[in-house]
Design a protein around this nucleic acid. Structure first.
Ligand code: FES
Ligand code: FES
Lengths: 150, 150
DNA sequence: CTAAATTAGGACAAACAACTCTTAAATAGA
DNA sequence: TCTATTTAAGAGTTGTTTGTCCTAATTTAG
């Protein structure tokens, strides 16, 4: 798969938060239940996003997580990089060390284009924007239609 | 990474064969040494390609593998599918089951485009063509410049 | 016929990704 | 203050990918 499972779960949880009331905290228990993601696993992933400054968390009853300002301004690219790192956008398609035009592999030119189109797609898509569109058009965010944008 | 290691090794070995004398068998020992790939691991991968009809093998002294006619006609897409399967070209970007326009996820439209550009790039690139170009322009096929297109 | 070279194929081991469980720390409310 | 609720953090488990090893089967050459 293009993105790791951690990354996909992080994206889905971020879309969830972006579609909810701004500034409010939502508990991981609720998010994991609605999206059908393992609670403990999701915890780890959102801890990463919190550490990265894309989310804020609050402990205790009525606690939870919410998007920070940085998170609200983020594109999908920012989220993907926060979890999967830059590998997808820097590595050689043939796995050779140091992808670059100094000593390209046979796929370099084609891959640079394709890689660029992936990167561009993620960079032009804002989290907030895609969440709004998803809410409007009732796109799905979980298997089995568990989640319904409220 | 976009492609699995198995897939990348298979591609590199295929490029190797495509750049060599047509119809001749080259031993896995030689290929693995020149490309810096584990001999036994490469064996497994090329067995897959042989089973898939993209290569032909011959046992015994002076034995080895070579591209079949199907292999010589193949595009990178054919090779990728033979090893990694169709997953990359059929699965939902958010990992939801049954990617399709009936019940799209928020990324569906964007991902269909991007996925299409990956697919198109692989389909328009023929193995033989890219091998010829690589040989002409002395592109690299291994780390550390072990391999030099002879 | 025999020995060496080679692919085929299975069992195994190591590394990594994905997932689970337990305990600690913070917070709210009774 | 005490208890329940929640995130934080780390250890542990499972499963998949990657890589290794050993034994067969096939073929060539002497
Ligand atoms: S060197 Fe291989 S893709 Fe750039
Ligand atoms: S349904 Fe998610 S990409 Fe098609």
């Amino acid at each position: 798969m293009l993105l790791s499972k951690s990354c996909v779960y992080g994206l889905r949880a971020s879309l969830y938060l972006a579609s909810k009331r701004d500034g409010e905290f939502y508990s991981l228990k609720e998010i994991s239940k609605e999206l059908g993601i393992s609670f403990h696993f999701l915890t780890k992933i959102l801890q990463q996003l919190t550490a990265d400054g894309l989310m804020e968390s609050y402990k205790g009853p009525n606690g939870g997580v919410r998007l920070s300002q940085k998170g609200k301004d983020a594109t999908l690219f920012d989220l993907v990089v926060a979890i999967d790192g830059l590998g997808l956008f820097t590595q050689c398609a043939l796995g050779l060390p140091g992808c670059g035009s100094q000593e390209p592999c046979p796929l370099h030119e084609s891959w640079m284009n394709t890689r660029g189109s992936i990167e561009h797609m993620l960079k032009r898509t804002s989290l907030i924007g895609i969440a709004r569109e998803g809410k409007e058009k009732h796109f799905r965010l979980s298997a089995e239609g568990k989640f319904s944008w409220q």
